[in-house]
Write a protein that binds this DNA or RNA. Structure first.
Lengths: 214, 214
DNA sequence: GCGCATCCTTGAACATGTTCAAAGACTAGC
DNA sequence: GCTAGTCTTTGAACATGTTCAAGGATGCGC
């Protein structure tokens, strides 16, 4: 048996998987791990922090799946579609209570928020995947987009996740449809952004993005 | 004194405004309204339902402000910018705890979710504003976009709200910047969508949107 | 070996959202 | 005016996340 922190962590994650967020009580976690109630809160100041651990794990899983997709090469559209589907695969088993977790994750100030300092590792991992996605695309992404595109795609990925949470269709088919439709659109817009007519608009998008981000 | 339901409702909304969501307890609401604890839950099965009431009120406020903006006429960009700013004005006094409310609103299944049946009235009101925004734009919005654009803008509005919640800049300046930048971009893209090069892409966007919505 | 400081661990206590059985008020039908 | 049924209202009880004072363990300097 390793240390208590990991014991609590692993027990919590297992119960989350088995029962969901709301029905997994701190007391149940502690009891199942064989420790006192207060100890879980000693290592994880709030239940949010345990969700954050789950978030990290799913994220790692996504990174592994995405790496397998990316080593196959391909153009931007193919790679984007593959990475997004890989994310949906990694999330799949949580859909039943995914909504509960996203609720926790989206609250500003929550440890599980993708923007929180606690999520640094997860965010770095995700960003690395998307950097690689853009950098390795063939044909290459136009220069003027290469710097910002990964972050834009990261945000798009969050948007897809948000959609997925609200997607009540069987097997989340609609989210799959969204990914299959949106990926070629992104590819197409990136290609079109080189045309003179769109050069201005695409520059405006980038300027706005830079002006607005934290 | 009107009926108890309204009394509880108004008390709750006042306390929400004064103290925020988390620090306003159901007991405090009941006590301040001079009724028993259980009565608040009799009329509003959960605290979410009270947040939903707040959501409705803010939404009405937004509709009133937006109507004033729209009667001034103008092109799509001007009208969109005006309506979005009107929304930010309506929300402004809640920013301190806006995050708490959005947390509640974004949870699928929550009464306060903009997609819930409880929010039918609010959604209808919002949609009417955006229908009017698009219908009255001069120059007119191209035919092929006119049907779907209001709903797309409604989603964009939700996105702006989400951004606003996470916007920690003083006076939420960054969200204002986003609106000022995004509105002309939307206007520009709508105009450009008539060009042959973009006709295909814009049709794809619409097709995807139709395929994916509930 | 001894003190001492830091880290772990415990379980009770607390605050809060929600539920519920019981009681009270009110209304319609007669 | 009575009865039966429904709508309101109450306050205690319950479950749960979190806090906290108290007590152990552990290791370090000497």
């Amino acid at each position: 048996m390793t240390n208590s922190r990991e014991l609590v962590r692993d027990t919590a994650l297992r119960l989350f998987r088995e029962r969901g967020y709301a029905t997994t009580t701190m007391r149940a976690i502690a009891q199942e791990a064989g420790v006192a109630t207060g100890l879980a809160n000693y290592y994880f100041p709030s239940k949010d922090h345990l969700v954050q651990e789950l978030y990290v794990e799913v994220n790692r899983d996504h990174a592994v799946r995405a790496a397998r997709v990316l080593e196959r090469g391909g153009d931007l559209t193919t790679r984007l579609r593959g990475v997004l589907h890989a994310g949906l695969d990694a999330f799949a088993e949580y859909h039943g209570f995914g909504s509960e977790f996203v609720t926790v994750a989206i609250r500003p100030g929550s440890a599980a928020s993708p923007f929180s300092t606690e999520s640094d590792e997860a965010r770095t991992t995700s960003r690395a995947v998307l950097d690689e996605l853009v950098a390795g695309a063939d044909p290459a992404v136009p220069d003027h987009l290469r710097a910002e595109l990964p972050e834009l795609l990261w945000l798009a990925q969050l948007g897809v996740t948000l959609f997925w949470v609200h997607d009540g269709s069987p097997g989340q088919r609609r989210t799959r449809t969204l990914v299959d439709g949106a990926a070629p659109l992104v590819g197409r817009l990136v290609r079109l952004s080189r045309l003179p007519v769109l050069r201005g608009a695409s520059q405006e998008v980038l300027d706005l993005f830079r002006a607005v981000r934290a």
